[in-house]
Amino acid sequence: MLSEHGVSVHRTPAPRPHAAHAPVLTADFASPAQWVAGRSWAYPDGGPVNPGDDKLDHLVADPSYSRTGTFRARRRPEGTWSTGLLTTEGSDEDFMVCVGDVVEARVRLPREVGAWPAIWTWRDGGQEIDVFEYHPDNPDLLELSNHVRTAHHYHHDPAVHPGALVDLRVEFGARSVTWWVNGAAAFSDGRGVGGHWRAHLVVNLSVSAGRYHPPPRPDVSEMSFEVPMLRVHRER
């Protein structure tokens, strides 16, 4: 079926969440063993810029942009933005999310138009599942996407708004990826990730360049979003 944005959407009833096992990853964003800052192979040549994806990002390794769990973006003189990104790819632990894993996160959404926060996965040029994406110009909407097997959902929720604290949970099932928002079932895609999927985690704050969402206003020079909690559970 088609969403209001003209994107193919698969919708099946979301099951109850499985009981959580002890986490195999509890994010310590200050840990260089868990996370690499300011570089991702999801960006051309690992970064620092990615204009082809409609981003004004200029990735920086400065710990004040990401290592505190507050992901920041600051305007640069030439018009790009210094942005915070952390990934498990290339870290000492090289952690990857696997089939059957459950990701839980708590995020505080940004307020500024042009901010583009996300938690997502990436490996070898793809394997992307978006735990969430958000754009404050669509204030009540979270974007939930499976790019591995092409399923998308635009989740409208009055509890979602700029500055809101939101709890997210995603089960990466072989036959269906399922999202919960603030404890309520939001989307089960009926597509899944297949039996052998695995991918690294990425957490970042991008900045929209204006093709799909408005860029920041000229009087805005800084923005941020927070990730107070991120963990991964594994059944086996």
Rank of each mutant, 00 (worst) to 15 (best):
P23Q: 14
P17W: 10
P228R: 07
W180T: 06
E89G: 09
N146Y: 04
G52Q: 13
D124M: 10
L25Y: 01
Y212F: 11
A184Y: 02
T70L: 07
G125Q: 06
V102F: 09
W197N: 07
S91I: 05
D62C: 05
P136R: 00
W81G: 08
L56P: 11
F225C: 03
E93Y: 09
S3K: 10
E4R: 14
Q34V: 01
V7D: 13
V177K: 09
E226C: 08
G192L: 09
A184I: 02
G84T: 08
A61I: 00
G173T: 14
R74H: 08
W180N: 07
P48T: 05
Y134G: 04
A30V: 02
F71S: 03
D130I: 00
H196N: 12
T26K: 06
R72F: 01
W120F: 15
R234Y: 06
V49C: 09
L2I: 12
S224F: 08
H155N: 00
R198L: 04
Y43M: 07
A42W: 04
S64T: 07
A42D: 14
S176K: 13
E143W: 13
H152E: 12
A20G: 13
E226N: 04
R217Q: 10
D137S: 14
A73S: 09
L141N: 08
G46M: 08
F29N: 03
R76T: 04
V103C: 04
A159L: 10
A159Y: 01
L230W: 00
H135R: 11
T26H: 04
Q127S: 13
P218M: 05
V97G: 01
P32W: 06
H161A: 13
T26L: 12
S176D: 13
R231N: 14
G100V: 12
S64H: 04
G6T: 00
A105T: 06
R231E: 15
W122T: 00
F225E: 00
A20P: 08
P77V: 03
Q127A: 15
P17S: 09
V227Y: 03
P216H: 05
E128W: 07
P77G: 06
F29V: 00
R234Q: 12
L85T: 11
P162T: 05
A186G: 07
G38I: 02
V203P: 09
D140T: 13
P17G: 08
W179T: 04
H147G: 02
S3E: 08
S64G: 06
Y154Q: 13
E4T: 04
Y43D: 06
R175I: 02
N50F: 13
K55Q: 15
G47H: 05
R123P: 01
H21T: 15
M96A: 08
P13Y: 02
H200S: 13
W122Q: 04
G125K: 05
T88N: 08
R72H: 14
P77L: 04
W179K: 03
